[in-house]
Every structure is written in structure tokens, then in C-alpha cells.
Nucleic acid binder design. Structure first.
Lengths: 202, 202
DNA sequence: ATAAAGATAGTAATTGATTACTATCTTTAT
DNA sequence: ATAAAGATAGTAATCAATTACTATCTTTAT
């Protein structure tokens, strides 16, 4: 527990706010994270939050922007360190999974935002994120094909789709079971089936 | 649009209420489906809703019970009609996907409920549902192994897990893209990779 | 050098809107 | 006739947002 620090510069206060929201989301339904709760956790009064964000939506937007940036960074780092395209896919998968385990509130916030009908700003940011994410997957899959590691006839889009779906499935199951740790247990086993589904069987 | 019918017997009114909530969830964030909105859609006043349910949670609970019962029924029917275990898995998959396309509000309601921290009654019902669902998958997978259709060394639990995760992934992507129709387009392609991952390659 | 002026961060109290829920009266189907 | 279904008119609680005010730095003019 970080001792409440007051009179932070505005940009630091905004960063701490984002951090606080992510922590709160790990403990409760994101839709009942009130501005009062955010303030209390930071050791401020409710009104002070609105000195740094014009409204509540702007807070959520900042959270999602942070997540998008951070996740792509971690996933890229993991992929770069891997010796082959297939190994890079697995490294990306595990990096993503570990990111979620470290910040279990994040998928809850994202799922909550996706619930909103129609286009919203957070949804646009999430769309851009998945677009960039898919680009990386497509690139690795094509390299795996030329590498003969992956099946030459593999449906690139379906594979990228399944990759992301696996992670979302792992998260949903962990929410249902109230047990984040099980993600770490199930992830490699699920990836093993995926690997069998995409690899070159010649 | 069903013309509002008044003075329904209590059990029919409860059924209509469940139906109405599912329809509303297809149009908006489940967390802002108010009792007033439910009543308005049925052509009743808000107070009248509480003649049939003790509180709002009881409505949600009834919705989730209906979903659990209906989904298992449809999935069982599809599996029974299939000629082999692997075909039954695919039939289950497509039956589930079609159920969601017909009622796009359902996954949103379920996801919303899973967001709540700790144990809630709807969560318990959803846990029972996935437990029964997994039992059916395990049974089919074992039959596929003895049948030589599936890989004898296949990790049964991981496969069942991936099966459910694929559907959840399809739903998340369709929420993100604001396009339910794309589920129908992507489902068979994703299943093809899964099939390749579980089948007997001897 | 230093006092005045202004910027920055936060407080405390309030407001208006929303929403689940309730008590009591009225209508309708059998 | 009467019991079930619904209408009406509330209440109490919650919550995002606003606002007047304070304390503490930082800059600037003399």
C-alpha cells in the first residue's frame, strides 16, 4: 500500500490516478468504481479528481491508453527475444498472459467498455490496439510459413483470431472461477493445442 | 415489435420480462438496463415489474437460469444429431454460435455478471452451466479418442477449455467490431484450426 | 533582495439527476 | 364478487459534477 502523497504535479497525479483505477478494478466491478473511491484510495477528496480530468470518461480513456501502450511494448519485447516465429508467438502469448496476471483489473475494465453499444472513444482505442496486435501476429505467422515451421495453408486471420480468443477465454474462465492463478496453469496447455493446429505437419 | 399485452398471468409476465431483458441487452450496456426501461418495453409502468419479482437481482437470476437451460438443450440436440464425436463437437460449436447470434444480448449479460468480484448467485448458475458444458465436451473427446478420430494423447481439459474460449473470443471480437454477423463468418475458420489441433494425425 | 501577483493542488459542501424499491389506489378477467 | 395485475405517486440513497474557498509554491517587478 502506497502512503497517500499529496500535492503531486498534475502529470504525476494523472499517472497515479490511472494506476489506482487499475488496482480498484482488480477488487470490484469496474462499473462501481466511483470517483469517490478513486479519490479515497489516493488520499484525496472526490472533487480533487476533477482538477485533473474533465470528467469520469476521461479517466477511463487515460487508463485504456496506458494499457494499449504498455501491452504492445511488453509483447514486442517478448517476441524480439524469441529465436523463431513459432517461439515468438508463444513468447507473446505468455507475455500477454503475465501482463494480465499482474494487472487482473485490466481485462475487466476493457470488457466493461466493450459492453457499451455503438462507438465510444475507449472502444476506438481498443480497436486500434487489436489491429496493431493482429498485424504483429500476421507478420509472425507469415514468417513461420516461409520458415516451414507453420502450415503453408494456414488461415492467417483465423489463427490470429484464435490466438486472441484464447487469451480472452482464459480471462473469462478465471473471472468465473474467481482465480487468476489458473490462467498460468492453463495457458501453456491451451497453447499446445494451438501449436498443433498451426504447425507444419509435413 | 410485439404489441404490449397487459394483464398477463404472473408466470407469463415473468417469461416476457426475461425475454425483454435479453432484447434490451442487445441494444445497450446491461448495467444500464433500468427497471423503468424493462417496464416501458413491456408497456407497463415501472412499479408493476415489482409485482412479479422481489428485486432486480431476481430478474437477472431468472434470465441466467433461462439461458443455461436453453443453451444446454440446443447444444445437446445438435450433438445428438451428429454422426461422429468430432462432428458432434462441430455441431455443438455451431449451435452455440447460432444461439448467441439469435440473442446477442446474452453474452453481454453474462460478462457483466462475471465482472462482480466474489461469489454471486448468477455466477454460481454460470459455473454450473460451464461445468455441465465441459462434462459434455469431455465425454465427446473421450469417445473421439476411442474412435481414433482424435489424438489419443490429447489434453482433454485444455481442449474443452479452448473450445469454450473460442466462443468467448468470437463474442468479444464481435462486440469490439460492433458486428454480430462476423461471428458466423469467423466461426468455421477458427474451428478448422481447432480441429487440426485435436485430430488424430497418424 | 523581496514583496506583490499569480499559478497550482486540494478541500468541503452542495446540487441535480438517476434509480431501485414501496405503499396505496384502481382496473380487469373470471 | 374478488383476487390478481397494474397505475400512481412517492422515498431514500447514490453519484458525477460544480463551486467557493485555502494553502503552498513560483515568478516577476522594483
Amino acid at each position: 500500500m502506497i502512503p497517500p502523497v499529496k500535492h503531486l504535479p498534475a502529470n504525476e497525479r494523472r499517472a497515479v490516478t490511472v494506476e489506482t483505477v487499475i488496482k480498484l478494478a482488480a477488487e470490484r466491478n469496474p462499473s462501481d468504481i466511483t470517483t469517490a473511491a478513486i479519490a479515497e484510495r489516493m488520499g484525496l477528496t472526490q472533487g480533487a479528481v476533477f482538477r485533473h480530468f474533465p470528467n469520469k470518461d476521461a479517466i477511463l480513456q487515460a487508463v485504456i491508453e496506458w494499457v494499449a501502450e504498455r501491452l504492445l511494448f511488453l509483447v514486442d519485447k517478448a517476441a524480439r527475444a524469441a529465436p523463431s516465429p513459432l517461439a515468438a508467438l508463444e513468447a507473446m502469448f505468455m507475455a500477454h498472459v503475465n501482463f494480465i496476471i499482474e494487472h487482473p483489473g485490466i481485462p475487466r475494465i476493457l470488457f466493461g467498455e466493450l459492453q457499451h453499444a455503438g462507438e465510444t472513444i475507449p472502444k476506438r482505442i481498443a480497436q486500434t490496439l487489436t489491429h496493431r496486435y493482429r498485424e504483429r501476429l500476421h507478420r509472425l505467422i507469415e514468417r513461420g510459413k516461409t520458415n516451414k515451421e507453420l502450415d503453408a495453408n494456414l488461415d492467417r486471420e483465423a489463427a490470429a483470431f484464435l490466438f486472441i480468443g484464447m487469451i480472452q477465454g482464459l480471462v473469462m474462465q478465471s473471472l468465473l472461477a474467481n482465480d487468476v492463478g489458473r490462467i498460468l496453469h492453463d495457458a501453456p496447455r491451451v497453447f499446445a493445442i494451438f501449436r498443433q493446429g498451426i504447425r507444419n505437419t509435413q
